[in-house]
Simulated assay, not measured.
Amino acid sequence: MKAPQQHIIIKGHGAISPLGHDASTVAAAYASGVPAFKTILHQGIATPVAALTQEAEQQLNSLLDSNPSYKQLDRSVLMAVYAARQASMAAGWLTEDASVADDLGVNIGSSRGATGLFEQHFEDFQHKQLSSSASPTTTLGNLSSWVAHAVNAGGAQISHSITCSTALMALANGVAWLRAGMAKRFLVGGTEAPLTDFTIAQMKAVGIYSKLSGHPFPCQPYALEKQNTFTLGEGAAVFAIEQSDSLQPGDVLVEAVGMGFEKLVSKTGISAEGINFQKSMRHALSQLSPEDQTVHLIITHTPGTRAGDKAELAAIEAVFGAATPVAITTNKWLIGHTLGASGALSMDYAIHILKQQQYTSPTYAHVLTPQNHKAIKRIMVNAAGFGGNASSVIIALA
C-alpha cells in the first residue's frame, strides 16, 4: 500500500508590525494601502522609519506587564513572544496550565538580535555599571528560549541569524525537523527591533538609506526613479507548523523551501544577475511536480535599493521567463525593511493574500506590469541577506 502524502501545514500565525497587532488590524492596513512610516531625528538628521502602531505598542506593553521577568528582555524578544503566543493560540496549542510539550520545537531568528539592550549595556559598561543580566539577555539564544517559556514548548530551542534570510531559514529548519520525524510541531519565525541609533547608523554607513524623509513613500521598491530608498522597520512574525497526511479546505501548505548562495561580489553580496535568487527559486520549484510549478504571485525581497531590486527582478525573469511575466508584489513600500523579520512578515502577507485573494500594488511610479490571476493559489516568498545567501518559500492554499 502506498504511504499517504505528508503535508506541512501552517496551523496558525501571529504578527506584530507597523501595520498592526492581529489579523484584523493588519488586514485593514493592507486594504488601506497607507504606508506606516514616520520621521525621526537621527543624529540631527530627519530619517524615515516604520515603527509599531500606538495600538500595537499598547499590546506589547500589556505583555511586558504580564510577567516581571519580561522587563529585562530586549524589544526583539518581546515581539517574538507576542507573535508566538498569537500563533500558538490560533493553532490551538496554547493552554496556560498545560505541562511542557516535548514534541513542540521553537526556531526564532534575528539579524541583529538584542540591539537595544546591547547599546544600553555598552553605555552602562562605559560608566562601569554593567548589569549581571547583560550577557544572558543579549545572547541570540534567548530569543527561542523565552518563546519556549511563553508557549510551554519543551522541544528543540534554536536561535540563529543568517541576516535578512533568517526567518525563511527558520521555516526551512522547522520543515526539516518535521519531515525527519524529530519533532511533531514547530514554531518558526523572525523578529527585529532595529530602530536604534547604532543600527540606523550602520545602515546609513552602507550608503543605501532613504533620503526621502517626509515623503509618503520613503521606501520605494521597483521605483522608476533610480535611487536607494532602503528604510528600516521593526516587527515579528511566527508560524505554527505541523505535518499531516490529510488536508482541509482553506489549509495553507508549505510546499517547498529553496536555498541559494553566491560568492561575494560586493559588500552586500549580490550580483547583477541575482545568482543567489536564481538558485533559491529553482531549488524551490524543483521540489514540486511539473503540474504544480505555476506560481501565481511572488512576494519579493526588494528592499528599495538600486542594485538589489534590479538583481532580483533580473533573477525572476531568468527563472520564469519574460514572455509570460509572473505577478510581483512586496510589503516593504508599506513597512520598510525589517531585516531578519522581513521574510516572516512577507510570509504573513502571503497568507493574507491567499485568504483575501487580493493585494495592494504600490501607488508611486514603478516598473512593474500589472498581472492579474482569477485565483491566487500558490505564492513564492523571497528573501536574501548580506553574505550572498537567498531563500525562496512556496506556500499554497489547499
Rank of each mutant, 00 (worst) to 15 (best):
K2T: 15
A3S: 15
I8N: 03
I8S: 08
I9R: 03
G12W: 01
G12T: 10
H13L: 15
A15V: 15
I16S: 13
A23C: 15
A29T: 14
G33L: 13
G33F: 13
G33S: 13
T39M: 13
L41F: 05
L41G: 05
G44V: 12
A46R: 12
P48R: 03
A50V: 07
T53N: 09
L60R: 02
S66M: 04
Y70H: 01
K71R: 02
R75M: 02
V77R: 02
A80Y: 01
G92H: 04
G92R: 05
D97L: 11
G109Y: 01
G113K: 03
F118Y: 07
F118V: 08
Q120D: 11
E123V: 11
K128A: 06
P136Y: 09
T139M: 06
G141N: 07
S144F: 06
H149C: 09
N152M: 06
A153H: 05
S159D: 05
H160V: 09
T166A: 06
L171T: 00
G174C: 04
A176F: 11
W177Q: 12
M182P: 05
A183S: 10
V188N: 01
G190F: 05
L195F: 12
T199P: 07
I200E: 09
V206N: 15
I208E: 02
S210D: 12
K211I: 10
P216I: 14
C219I: 14
Y222L: 12
N228C: 14
T229W: 10
A236V: 09
A240E: 06
P249L: 07
D251F: 09
A256S: 03
S266N: 03
I275H: 01
Q278A: 02
Q278E: 03
H283L: 00
Q293V: 06
H296M: 08
H301N: 12
K310Q: 08
G321N: 11
T329D: 12
T329K: 07
I335M: 03
A341E: 13
A350N: 06
I353L: 06
A365K: 11
A375C: 12
G387H: 03
G387V: 06
S391M: 07
I395K: 01
